[in-house]
Amino acid sequence: MPVGVKVRTLPMQVAARLVERIATGGPAPSELEISQEFGVSRIVARETLKILASLDIVDIAQGRRVAVRPPEEWDYLNPLLAEWLPEEQVVTLLRELHQVRLLLEPELAAMAAANMTDETLARLRQEMDRMTALTGEPDHYLEADHAFHMEICRAANNRILDRIMYSARWLGTASRRVTNAPRGSLHRATDAHARVLAALEARDPEAARAAMRDHLHGNIPILAEKEQRTKRASAAP
C-alpha cells in the first residue's frame, strides 16, 4: 500500500521482493541464494540482508544460516514495511494502529485540554481552517488532519507519547487514506475535529476525551470494511 516511500536502490528492490515472500511464509535466503536468484553481486545481496535485518525480519549471524524472526518482532512502524507487505497484512496493521489510537488519543486530548495555551489553540484553529477548506482535496486534507492531531499530542507535554505517535505517522497516513475515501467522510471528519477543538477551547478534559473517542470510533466501520474487502479479494481464485 503506497504511503509515499519509493523503492530506488537495487538492494531495496530485492528486499521488497523478499519481504513479500517472507511475509507469506517463505524462508530467508542466504547471501549466495539472493545473488544467484536475482542475478546481483554478493555486495548487493549483503546489503539486501542488512535491510531485512534493519526491519527486524531476519537475524544474521556469522557462520549461521539467515533466520526469519517471529513476525510479532518485525518493525511495523518502519515505513518500508507499510510499503512492502502484502495489502491484506497492511490493512490488518491499520486496524491495530487504530486500536492504539483509541487507547492513547482520547487521553492525549484530555491532557492537552488541561495544558492548553492560546498559542496552541491558534495553531489548532489554523489547521481546522485548512481542513474546512480542503474537504474536496483528500491528499492535502490528510496533511492538515495529521498536523491537527500532532498539535494535540504535543500539547499533552509528554515526549514519550509524542514520539510514539510520530513514529506511527506512516501507518497513520495510510489509515487516513482509507478512512477519508468514502463519500462525505471528509465533511464528517471536519465536524468531528470541530467538536474536539471546541472542547479544547473550553479547556475541558472530559469533553475533549469524549470528543476524540467519538471521532475515532466513527472510523472503525470504514477500516473493518476495508479489511474484509481486501481479505476477500486476496482469497479469490
Rank of each mutant, 00 (worst) to 15 (best):
I60P: 10
A61I: 14
A61G: 03
Q62I: 07
G63M: 08
R65V: 15
A67L: 06
R69P: 02
R69K: 06
P70H: 13
E73K: 14
D75P: 04
Y76N: 04
P79Y: 05
L80D: 01
L80R: 08
E83L: 13
E83V: 02
E83P: 02
W84I: 01
V90E: 01
V91F: 05
T92W: 06
L93P: 04
L93I: 07
L93F: 11
R95H: 15
E96P: 01
E96M: 12
Q99N: 09
V100Y: 07
V100E: 04
R101C: 04
L104P: 03
L104F: 08
E105Q: 12
E105F: 14
P106S: 06
L108P: 06
A110P: 12
A113N: 05
A113I: 00
A113E: 00
N115P: 01
N115S: 12
M116G: 02
D118H: 15
L121W: 04
A122N: 11
R123I: 00
R125D: 13
Q126S: 08
E127F: 11
E127T: 08
D129H: 08
R130C: 02
M131T: 08
T132A: 14
T132R: 11
L134C: 13
L134W: 13
T135G: 14
G136I: 02
G136M: 01
G136H: 05
E137T: 10
P138T: 09
P138F: 08
P138L: 15
D139N: 03
H140F: 09
E143K: 07
D145L: 09
D145Q: 07
H146W: 05
A147I: 01
F148W: 09
H149E: 12
H149L: 13
H149G: 01
M150C: 09
M150N: 07
I152M: 11
C153W: 03
C153H: 10
R154S: 09
R154F: 11
R154Q: 14
R154I: 11
A155L: 04
A155Y: 03
A155W: 00
A155I: 07
N157G: 10
R159S: 12
R159N: 10
R159K: 14
